[in-house]
């Protein structure tokens, strides 16, 4: 009975909010939906999309050899940037992930605990949080402010954001791993490093690889965003062409970008099914 009352109350509140907000939009703000679909807006949109496919453009980028050459060069640069980014973040993740796992810090996994375990655990986990919390766009702005624009700062920015994500995911993979084989290795006299090599890594590596490939896919898609703030690659050129109204160049870049994303998806999907 009480639950019924709660549901009806929230339904009534919902309708009240719905009516109230539309009243505000239409009466108080004097907004009109029909204004969105005016002749002017329609012709602007038509012009833009016609421009994208090359109707009425003087220099059609699809037919120009130099444009293709430039676009493909930028595609290669973008690919490079994403590879560098995932490479950097993977290296840093591997260096930090083991002390960042809770079961390593409290000693249940490796059966040895040192006083500094919790300290390094806290520091590394905090760095993961900072790295994750700041979006790659902001990282890119900061890094480009320090370095000059190019694909290296773009890669660094992407790596800075993704290492926190990878670190967290992989540390959790270690936390979920089975401690029974590890205990037995310890009983057979294996050292801490040997335990990691024989007991922990084989169990978590397939998962690590899945995460790394997935983040690489995401990074590939984000390169265009960090490119817009000057990190090089397709994104930077995309923004420049937009501001110069080179519409066919824009669509050419979009085509290259789509091909890149398809390739990345294909590669990571195939290698993931190979790992499984």
């Amino acid at each position: 009975m009480r639950k019924m009352n709660f549901v009806t109350l929230s339904m009534m509140l919902f309708f009240l909010l719905f009516i109230g907000s539309w009243y505000f939009v239409i009466v108080a703000e004097n907004a009109s939906l029909s204004e969105l679909f005016t002749e002017k807006n329609a012709s602007h949109a038509a012009e833009f999309f016609k421009g994208l496919i090359g109707v009425g453009e003087d220099n059609n980028a699809f037919l120009s050899k130099t444009s293709w050459k430039q676009a493909l060069g930028l595609t290669r640069e973008t690919l490079q940037m994403s590879m560098m980014a995932i490479g950097f973040s993977t290296i840093v993740m591997f260096l930090t992930v083991i002390p960042a796992a809770r079961n390593v810090a409290d000693g249940t996994l490796t059966l040895s605990q040192k006083w500094h375990s919790w300290l390094s655990y806290g520091l590394i986990r905090a760095s993961y949080v900072v790295s994750r919390a700041i979006p790659e766009l902001v990282w890119a702005m900061i890094v480009i402010f320090i370095f000059k624009p190019g694909i290296l700062p773009g890669a660094i920015a992407l790596a800075l954001h993704n290492f926190g994500i990878l670190g967290k995911l992989c540390a959790e993979a270690i936390e979920d791993s089975d401690s029974r084989p590890v205990r037995n290795l310890a009983a057979a006299g294996a050292s801490k490093t040997q335990i990691l090599l024989y007991g922990v890594l084989p169990a978590v590596l397939p998962q690590f690889l899945t995460y790394i490939l997935y983040r690489w896919e995401v990074i590939m898609r984000t390169t265009i965003v960090v490119g817009m703030v000057g990190a090089g690659g397709l994104g930077q050129q995309f923004k420049l062409n937009m501001s110069f109204f080179h519409y066919t160049e824009v669509s050419l870049l979009l085509v290259c970008y789509l091909i890149l994303v398809f390739i990345a998806d294909f590669i990571s999907e195939r290698s993931r099914s190979f790992v499984k």
């Binding site: 089975d178 029974r180 084989p181 205990r183 037995n184 009983a187 057979a188 024989y198 007991g199």
Partner: peptide
């Protein structure tokens, strides 16, 4: 001196 064997879950299954 001492070796131990338990239930089979104590092997590393991926190796």
């Amino acid at each position: 001196k001492i070796g131990m064997v338990r239930q089979q879950f104590d092997l590393v299954p991926q190796l």
